[in-house]
Design a protein around this nucleic acid. Structure first.
Lengths: 358, 358
DNA sequence: TCTCGTATAGAAAGCGCTTGCTACGGCTGT
DNA sequence: ACAGCCGTAGCAAGCGCTTTCTATACGAGA
């Protein structure tokens, strides 16, 4: 059958305990013995039994990464970056120690799935969990999450948020890296206002997500700051919610254009949505940016290649993901207070311009 | 400490064996007993110890999905689709049974990492492994892979290839879903030839990958079929290799334009590369498609939004990923012979047109 | 030379679960 | 009325590893 520790021990003429110690490198073993053991491991092509090891040691080398949609590069980039640090192979450290397996879990944005994945990870006694992206703000779900995370935390699992604000309830997480969605949203709209736009449509994400809310709040902050659009009904009319996908951007933009033909700019909740918005604008026979300016958020890799290149807000997704990975591995100290806000940088490109006069 | 099976058993006044059986639902238990146990589980907030369970049962509920680059939607889409079927939460089946945890492993395209991840999964006694995307064709690596996969297979792990041709050595895999890269590449170039193009540049991927080779072979098949470009030196001159990213597309295209100003079309190894190619063409002051036609491969979601919309070859990534997931779960029977070729469909859009006459 | 650290190796007790086998009570068949 | 079953439940032996505690051998200090 499969080779066990005992087989290796027999071949190396040592006890199983010694083999285990050689493999874990956490106990002094004479060089000659070590070598004998290593050769036996090699000869027999021995592979450690993970479950057995986890059981005995009461720890596992799994790290969970929860994402809303792995097909979306927004999450793909963060997850990939985190995995970079979490190790698996090639974390630089040659071998022992940080050799963890990153598990990327696709929640599809569903609160229940998020919870279920957390249970699955708890079951596996995961070493750490990284939660990425905006959270759903239903109170019941938030409470359930807080409870679940607390349980995970005191089972020894490290909890890291990446691009997600900390939960309202004080929780036992290692760290939260929150994107400055509000600030980014504000600066983006300020840019548009500075160009001279006055009637700006907004294609928002799903209303229940923190990301959506923060970006929208930033947008409205900018409007109010400029003394525009203080009428809530007006704001409502220029805002359309939908999922974070291209199609939603397309349809919502059509809707906005229909509701308010006077808009001179459309801000999208993210770059993918912005792409849909661009398509809609074009299909209406309008030019970007001459007739309508369009802006996105995230600065995904394809945004610079849009025609015209998309004005957007750059989020350092890779860096944030990598940092989250490091925090999850305990390779880096948490920021003071456990919370760090990650700056969002305005990227002005060709898709925004002053509105046509008249 | 943490709640164990024994605690639940005590509370439900049954033996641990009974609790285990209730939880696994693989043994008759009286309804009243089951209910008592379930209540105890609930009361105590019991979560099964995964490692212990895997150890005792000699199986685990992990399924590995290997991808080259999770930040690339090409892989993100397939991985997400596979995960859909693999379950985790919400595989439809309510609860017991197919509740597996999908582990997405990012190899970064590195052969060594691929192997190391396979070892990690072997260590975890994964229930199945899905390998996506093109493979590296170094003979040593292929042999190592074949050996590793064989070992996994006879440890009971199901092996599925998705978008990857089967290994040359006969192996014990459940199934291989191979994309018709060669046929797609051929049809794409045939389309260009039919439009009247005669000198066509080709921005290829890394030379050692099967995907690269097949697409390129398809391209050349088309050229030969039309009686063009039978001179190998000429072919070389019009082909530039590079990684599958935007930057490579940009630079390679510049290089091709420099080497051979007479090209009227550029075919890119995939859509991402094509985006870079478009940027390069534009930066040279040339128009797409009037001066130069550009084509991609994969039909990623953003391709239809490029301006002009990208002519490309559609690969049913989601469907293929989902099918691979089903095969991995044993929910679907393998195709006859274990190998299925997945058709690639030519998508003609605005980025290709007849060359300028003259 | 004798006693003690020090360095290294082994024995053995679990870790928490699964599962083959046994036990037991009530039904059925004759 | 008795043997034989069926339907349930419990017993207990592991699964393959980690780790505490103990044992041994060696060299050093007294």
């Amino acid at each position: 059958m499969t080779v066990t520790l005992a087989d290796v021990a027999a071949r190396a003429r040592v006890s199983p305990a010694t083999v285990s110690r050689v493999l874990n490198g956490n106990y002094p073993v004479a060089a000659s013995t070590r070598e004998r053991v290593l050769r036996a491991v090699d000869d027999l092509d021995y592979v450690l039994n993970g479950p057995a090891s986890s059981l005995a040691a009461a720890t596992s080398d799994l790290v969970g990464i929860l994402v809303n949609d792995i097909a979306d590069p927004f999450f793909g980039i963060m997850a990939g970056a985190a995995q970079t640090q979490i190790g698996g192979p090639g974390d630089g450290s040659g071998r022992a120690g940080g050799e963890k397996l990153a598990v990327i879990c696709n929640t599809g944005g569903s609160p229940e799935r998020e919870l279920t994945y957390l249970t699955l990870l708890q079951r596996q006694r995961a070493a750490a969990v990284v939660l990425t992206g905006g959270a759903v703000e239903y109170p019941a779900h938030q409470a359930a999450m807080a409870a679940k995370l607390a349980k995970l935390a005191d089972a020894g699992t490290r909890i890291v948020f990446c691009g997600r604000p900390p939960l309202p309830e004080g929780d036992a997480l290692v760290a939260a890296l929150a994107f400055d969605n509000r600030g980014g949203g504000r600066r983006l709209t300020e840019h548009l206002i500075a160009l001279g736009h006055r009637r700006i449509g907004y294609v928002a994400g799903p209303p229940e997500r923190t990301t959506t809310r923060h970006r929208l709040e930033g947008h409205r902050e900018a409007l109010r700051g400029a003394g525009l659009d203080t009428d809530p009904a007006d704001e409502e009319r220029l805002t359309v919610h939908g999922p974070y996908d291209r199609r939603s951007g397309y349809e919502a933009t059509l809707e906005i254009l229909r509701r308010e033909p006077g808009v001179t700019a459309v801000v999208a909740a993210n770059d993918t949505v912005a792409l849909g918005a661009c398509a809609a604008v074009r299909d209406q026979g309008l030019r970007i940016p001459q007739d309508i300016s369009v802006a996105g958020f995230d600065d995904l890799p394809f945004s610079v290649d849009a025609v015209p290149a998309l004005t957007t807000v750059r989020l350092p997704l890779f860096e944030a993901g990598a940092r989250a990975g490091r925090l999850a591995m305990g390779k880096e100290n948490p920021p003071p207070g456990g919370i760090a806000t990650i700056a969002a940088e305005l990227m002005i490109r060709g898709s925004t311009a002053p509105p046509r006069v008249g």
